[in-house]
């Protein structure tokens, strides 16, 4: 493993090993372990996948195959705030495209990218089930509904401040 990574994440790695210990030998352990590992590290770099592969005795290609199959797993570090634009049908019909366009141009990045200051990452998500309030976005766990393009500026500002 990359030494820099090991020293930087000493504590998390310890917790990861504990986690693997709890799940080892259990049926269907891989996905919950990956989910919790991602909560720990914020993403699933190659080092973490390697440890999980060894710890759970699951071949690395299988671990990587699962990580890349499910869209909630990420191998790149995300920004401090996750701006997720719902691209479900209801939101689409109600102008999610324009909302996304506005966010992209305000932040100067595309979907899947992170701003240079590490503050924001934009994601396009599947329907989050708040269709009644379409179009919606979520920032971290906060949901913003019935959006219009003109609201975006103010919403993003709020996250810049704190």
């Amino acid at each position: 493993m990359d030494n820099a990574f090991a020293t930087q994440h000493k504590e998390e790695l310890g917790r990861l090993r504990e986690l693997i210990g709890q799940y080892r030998g259990r049926h269907g352990a891989l996905i919950p372990v990956l989910q919790k590992a991602q909560d720990l590290f914020g993403y699933l770099p190659i080092e973490v996948q390697g440890i999980i592969s060894e710890g759970l005795r699951i071949p690395l290609p299988e671990v990587y195959g699962v990580v890349t199959f499910y869209s909630q797993f990420t191998m790149v570090k995300k920004g401090k705030h996750q701006v997720a634009v719902c691209l479900g049908t209801a939101c689409y019909i109600r102008g999610a495209k324009d909302i996304l366009g506005e966010i992209q141009s305000r932040l100067g990045i595309e979907v899947g990218q992170t701003t240079d200051d590490g503050l924001f990452t934009i994601d396009g998500t599947r329907c989050i089930g708040a269709c009644g309030l379409a179009p919606v976005i979520t920032i971290d766990k906060e949901v913003y509904g019935r959006l219009e393009v003109r609201h975006i500026k103010g919403i993003l500002e709020k996250y810049r401040e704190d």
Partner: peptide, 20 residues
């Protein structure tokens, strides 16, 4: 973990089993 196809019953089962 974010895969529409996992609503399909056999895919859902594969997912519970820890697979793609």
């Amino acid at each position: 973990s974010g895969a529409f196809v996992c609503g399909e019953e056999t895919a859902l089962i594969a997912s519970i089993e820890g697979q793609r």
